[in-house]
């Protein structure tokens, strides 16, 4: 993968974590970007083509769930993987119902994260290829 490929966006209020994960993804050949808040994330999505957002759940101000909803509304083709140190089944279920592709618990295994990333990309491509799909949030039922 080259630097020109569509981006993966890491969103986390903890700079040490967000930056180092972005560096790891870049080192592994991804075009990775970093935003330290939900608002920065939404700003960036206006300007950049992003395929997958890796999104922290617990953030001050605009949390991961709010950000997820905003992303899905404005950019329905963007896939979201939630990444949290506070794994609860309720958050996971809520996130997936709101259109997140998956949820991983920190500290997540890097290889597992990359696999999820590739799976999310494939799902995005399938949705785009499906005629008549508007990218709207899937009905959870």
């Amino acid at each position: 993968m080259t630097a020109a490929s569509p981006a993966v966006l890491v969103v986390d209020d903890e700079v040490d974590f967000g930056e180092v994960l972005t560096l790891r993804l870049r080192e592994a050949g991804e075009n990775a970007l970093y935003a330290r808040s939900g608002r920065d994330c939404l700003d960036l999505l206006q300007r950049q083509e992003v395929e997958v957002v890796i999104l922290d759940v617990r953030m001050p101000d605009m949390d991961g769930i709010d950000t997820l909803q905003a992303i899905k509304q404005a950019h329905p083709w963007v896939e979201v993987i939630l990444l949290t140190g506070h794994g609860t089944i309720e958050t996971a279920v809520r996130g997936v119902k709101l259109g997140a592709y998956d949820l991983l618990i920190k500290p997540a295994d890097f290889q597992e994260l990359r696999e999820k990333l590739n799976q999310a990309r494939r799902r995005r491509q399938e949705r785009i290829d499906r005629p008549g799909d508007t990218g709207a949030i899937p009905d959870p039922s």
């Binding site: 903890e14 180092v20 994960l21 080192e27 592994a28 140190g85 506070h86 920190k106 500290p107 890097f110």
Partner: peptide, 24 residues
Amino acid sequence: AHEINNPLAVIQDSAGWLQQILEK
């Protein structure tokens, strides 16, 4: 445990990043 997971993630991924670099 919740509070430890975040710094643990920083340690793990910082070390992981350096390992990736060493493989280059």
